[in-house]
C-alpha cells in the first residue's frame, strides 16, 4: 500500500492537487467514512488530500432566515448550535443521532453529503430546507440544489477535483417548525433503517401549509415526499389526514432488504414516521409560539 498524504493550505492548491491526479485522489475531511471504506475494501486511493487545514470552512453563518454551513462544520457543532434551537430543531436532531460523541466530534456535514449514503442522516432535513451546495473546482465555482447533487447510492454530480465549500438554506417565511426521527436498533453509532424529516408551516387561518417531508434510507437516495406534501397543503391535522399521509409515505418508499431490516418493515416504518413527524411538527409550532408569548 502506497498511500500519499497531501496537506494543502489553500482551496486552490487542493483543487490543483486533485486535478493533477485525475480521479486517483480523494479529498478527506473528518475521514470517518473514507477510512472505514478503504480499510474494509483494501482499496485505498492513491492519495488523500486533507481539507482540514484550509481555513474558512468550519463555521456556521447567518442569523436567519438565511444560513450557511461550512462544509467542514462537524455534526457536534450543528447539534449544539443555539441558532437552530426552536423552529430549526430538526437540524440538531439529525446531527445528534449520527454516531456517538466520538464520531460527531470529527465527522463533517460536507463529508456526510459527499459520501452520499442513502442513509445519510443530514440529508432529509436539508432537502426539506431546499439546501444548495457550493462546489469549487478547476472549472470554477457552481451552486447545485442538494436534491440534484446526490444522484444515487454513493453517487453525486461532484467532479473528482471539486471541493464542497458550503451548504446554504433559508428558513420558511411563515410560522413553522421542524422534526427529525430516525429508526434504528440502537441510539448511537447506528445506520438508519428509515429516517424522516419534516418542516411544517402554519397559515394565518390555522391550516398546514408549505409542508415539506423527506425520507432517507428507504430507497437509493433520500427523497422529498411530494405526494404527501401536496395532500397536506391547506389541511387541518386529524387522524384521517395522518393516516393518508402515512399511506402516501409508505407508497413512496422503495426500500431494500438487508441485515438491518426487511423492506416491508422499512415501508411500514416510513408510514409510521411520516405520521409522527407531521403530528410532532404541527404541535411544535404552537409550543414555539406559546413559549414566545410567555417570554
Amino acid at each position: 500500500m502506497k498511500l500519499e498524504f497531501l496537506a494543502p493550505q489553500t482551496l486552490q492548491d487542493a483543487v490543483t492537487m486533485a486535478k493533477a491526479r485525475g480521479g486517483a485522489a480523494r479529498f478527506i475531511a473528518g475521514g470517518t467514512d473514507l477510512i472505514i471504506q478503504a480499510r474494509k475494501s483494501g482499496a485505498w486511493p492513491e492519495a488523500v488530500i486533507n481539507l482540514q487545514q484550509i481555513p474558512g470552512f468550519g463555521e456556521i453563518k447567518g442569523t436567519g432566515p438565511n444560513f450557511s454551513l461550512g462544509s467542514l462544520v462537524t455534526h457536534r457543532q450543528i447539534e449544539r448550535e443555539i441558532r437552530f434551537a426552536g423552529a430549526l430543531e430538526a437540524l440538531r436532531e439529525s446531527a445528534c443521532v449520527i454516531g456517538g460523541h466520538q464520531v460527531r466530534n470529527v465527522a463533517t456535514v460536507g463529508g456526510n453529503l459527499c459520501n452520499a449514503s442513502p442513509a445519510a442522516d443530514m440529508v432529509p432535513i436539508l432537502l426539506c430546507l431546499n439546501a444548495e451546495v457550493a462546489l469549487a473546482g478547476s472549472e470554477g465555482r457552481r451552486v447545485v440544489p442538494l436534491a440534484n447533487f446526490i444522484e444515487g447510492p454513493r453517487k453525486t454530480v461532484r467532479a473528482s477535483d471539486e471541493v464542497m465549500t458550503e451548504i446554504a438554506f433559508a428558513a420558511p417565511a411563515q410560522k413553522f417548525s421542524s422534526t427529525f426521527l430516525k429508526g434504528g436498533r440502537r441510539r448511537a453509532m447506528e445506520i438508519s433503517i428509515v429516517a424522516m424529516a419534516g418542516v411544517v408551516s402554519a397559515s394565518p387561518d390555522g391550516k398546514m401549509t408549505d409542508v415539506r417531508l423527506a425520507m432517507g434510507a428507504a430507497g437509493p437516495k433520500a427523497i422529498r415526499l411530494t405526494e404527501a406534501e401536496k395532500f397536506l397543503e391547506g389541511k387541518v391535522l386529524s387522524k384521517d389526514v395522518l393516516e393518508e399521509t402515512g399511506m402516501l409515505a409508505a407508497a413512496a418508499a422503495s426500500p431494500i432488504d438487508d441485515v438491518r431490516a426487511s423492506a416491508s418493515f422499512r415501508r411500514h416504518l416510513a408510514g409510521v414516521y411520516a405520521r409522527r413527524v407531521v403530528e410532532l411538527s404541527w404541535n411544535r409550532i404552537s409550543e414555539l409560539n406559546d413559549d414566545r408569548s410567555a417570554a
Binding site: 498524504f5 475521514g31 470517518t32 477510512i35 472505514i36 486533507n50 466520538q102 464520531v103 466530534n105 470529527v106
Partner: peptide, 8 residues
Amino acid sequence: SVASCTVL
C-alpha cells in the same frame, strides 16, 4: 473524544 480507529 474521538474514535481513534477512524482518525487518520
